[in-house]
Simulated assay, not measured.
Amino acid sequence: MYERYILISLSWCCVLQTFVYGAELPSDIEKCHFGDSTCLMRSINDLIKRYPKGIPEIGLPALDEAKMDNITILETPQEYGPIWMSFHTTDNIYKGLNNATITEINGFDEDPTKSRVVVKARIPRLLHEATYEMKGKYLVFIANTTGKLQSDFQNVQLTLTFKVIMEYRQNKRYLKIFELTSVVDLDRWIVWLADLYRENSDLTIALNRSMNENWIEFWNGLEPSVVKSFTNCFTALLSNVFENVAYDDMFLNSTNTADYYMQK
C-alpha cells in the first residue's frame, strides 16, 4: 500500500514537472539556429520519419492514423425549397501524414511574431476515412442516409501560413497560433460513399462513379469546406506541440533569449 502511494506520488510529480517546466523534444532530433530554414526542414522531416506514431509527451498525435474532430462538409439552409443538403462526418481518421515531406519553411526567427510563418509540404497520398451522414433534397430526390466514407487525396501540395503571439511561462516563451490559413492543391481526388442509396446498390455504384468521373467539379464546389477541415486539423496539431514545448527549447543558443524579450 505504501509502495503504491509512493508510485502515485512520483507519477504526479512527473506530470506536474512537465506542466510547469515544459516538455522537451526527443534527444535524437536535431536542433537548429533561429531562422535556419534548411536545418529546420531537415530536422522536421527526420522527426516525421522517426515518429510516425507521434510523441505523446510533447502533444504530437499519431501521424500514420491521425484522429480528428467531427467535420461539416456541407450545410445549406433547409428552407423547404427544391434543393438543400447537409453532409457531416464523424470518426474521422487521416492516414498518410507520416509520409509528408516539408519542402519550404520560413518565419521561425528569433522573434517569430514579426512575420508570418510559412510551411509548405507534399503528401503523396492522404486517405480520409470516416462515417458520413447525409440529408438533403434535390428536386424529387430525397436523401437521408449514413455510411462509411473513404476519400483519397493524391499528391497533395499543402501551404500553411499563420501568425503567432507569445505567451510567457516560467521565464520561457510559448507560441500561440492565430490567423492560420491553408492552401491545398492536388492531382486527383477519389471518393467512395458506401450505402449512398441502400435500396439500390447499382445506383450507389453509378452515383459514386459519376462523382469520380467529374471529380474536379465536385472538388471546386466542396473545396472551401474541405480546406477548412484541413486548417482545423493542422491548427490543432501545431497548437498542441507549441503548448507543450517552449519555443526557445526548440532551438540552439537560446539561453538568454526569453529573458531578453521579457525585459523589453
Rank of each mutant, 00 (worst) to 15 (best):
F19T: 06
M85Q: 06
L25P: 02
C14V: 15
E65V: 02
N70Q: 14
I55R: 07
G54C: 03
Q78P: 01
E79L: 15
G35E: 03
I55E: 04
T76A: 06
E75A: 13
W84I: 10
R50C: 01
E75F: 06
E57W: 02
T38Q: 12
P26R: 09
E65H: 15
G22Y: 08
F19S: 06
C14G: 13
Q17T: 12
D64K: 12
I83H: 09
P82G: 00
L60V: 02
I44L: 15
I83K: 08
I48M: 08
N70R: 13
K49N: 08
T72S: 13
L40C: 02
L63E: 08
G22H: 10
T72H: 01
E65I: 01
G59S: 09
A62M: 07
L63H: 07
T72K: 10
C39V: 06
L60I: 04
F19Y: 14
E57Y: 07
I73D: 02
E24S: 14
T72L: 04
I83R: 09
L16K: 02
G35F: 04
P26S: 07
T76S: 15
K49W: 01
E24L: 13
G59T: 11
Q78T: 03
D46G: 00
S27A: 13
D28L: 08
S43I: 04
I58A: 03
D28P: 05
P52A: 08
Y21C: 03
I29F: 05
S37A: 15
G54H: 05
G81A: 05
I83N: 03
T18M: 11
C32D: 08
E24T: 13
G22L: 10
L63P: 10
L47P: 01
I73K: 02
K49T: 12
V15D: 01
G35P: 06
L47V: 03
D64W: 13
N45R: 07
L40V: 06
G54I: 05
D36A: 09
P82E: 05
S37I: 04
T76V: 12
I73P: 03
D64M: 07
F19G: 00
L40W: 01
D28F: 09
T18I: 11
V15E: 10
L16S: 12
L40E: 12
E57L: 15
I44S: 04
D46A: 11
Q78W: 05
G59D: 10
L16V: 15
T38K: 14
A62T: 13
F34H: 10
M41D: 00
S37H: 07
C32F: 06
M41G: 12
I44M: 12
T18H: 05
C39M: 06
I58N: 05
I71V: 15
V15W: 11
E75Y: 10
L74D: 01
A66G: 00
F34P: 02
A23Y: 11
P82K: 11
R42H: 14
H33F: 09
F34I: 06
G22E: 11
A62L: 00
P26I: 10
I83L: 14
I29D: 02
P82M: 08
M85F: 15
